[in-house]
Design a binder for these strands. Structure first.
Length: 211
DNA sequence: AGTGCGATTGACT
DNA sequence: GTCAATCGCACTA
């Protein structure tokens, strides 16, 4: 390790600590709350891209709005993996969405990652997104997937181990976490299963849902 | 085989 | 504020 690395710990790959699977709450809604303030790390050939998770949604067991509601299919099988695995799917034929599987093996449920506060690799994110504005780089589930170049190839990967995509412990105090209805769904829409960092400009959704 | 509909986004009136 | 893009899946026949 060079002197540069010692002086700038944030540039070291080893700076971030993967989340321990044992530490992940076993309940989907609890996991959605827990993930606020943790760090999503993407390893690309050009370098590390990462962001602090500021918004999530829980799709709990038996949820009529969840993709696992009608049982396992080719697309949603990753939702049934042990908690801490990636479920990536294409929404509207245009945007990839990243979920974290959330229950015991064989039970389908997950947490949708909806927004990040950009952290490392911001120039790479700007190229991936084709825009400049920092606030919009990863504000929205499809946008964050594009910023981190997340696609179906990452479906099923273990997010509790270093690799192409993984989750790391947050290193700052997490602010107040708000709760609201989930965005963009019709069934079971009234349940308060969306979690967000109150006051963060990097959170998506209507202003009325962010108070 | 055909139809309808999304856990969205970006462009446009 | 409206709306099209574009694809996988559920559902019907």
């Amino acid at each position: 390790m060079g002197r540069e690395d010692l002086l700038k710990p944030e540039r070291r790959k080893s700076f971030h600590v993967p989340l321990s699977r044992r530490a992940l709450p076993l309940d989907t809604a609890s996991l959605a709350h827990y993930l606020i303030g943790t760090i999503l790390v993407r390893e690309l050939p050009e370098g590390i891209v990462s962001g602090t998770i500021v918004e999530t949604e829980a799709y709990i067991i038996g949820d009529a709005a969840g993709h696992a509601f009608r049982g396992m299919t080719k697309r949603n099988r990753s939702l049934f993996l042990e908690r801490g695995h990636a479920y990536v799917y294409l929404a509207y034929g245009t945007s990839f969405m990243l979920n974290v599987s959330s229950e015991v093996p064989g039970v389908g449920a997950g947490v949708l990652i909806r927004a990040l506060e950009p952290r490392e690799g911001i120039p790479i994110m700007r190229i991936n997104r084709g825009i400049e504005r920092l606030r919009d780089l990863a504000r929205g589930p499809g946008r964050l997937a594009a910023a981190l170049r997340i696609d179906a190839e990452l479906d099923g990967c273990d997010l509790c181990r270093r690799g192409p995509l993984w989750l790391a412990r947050g290193d700052r105090k997490v602010g107040e976490i708000g709760q609201s209805m989930r965005i963009g769904i019709s069934r079971d829409a009234d349940r308060l299963l969306r979690f967000y960092l109150r006051g963060s400009p990097y959170v998506s959704g209507l202003r009325s849902l962010n108070q």
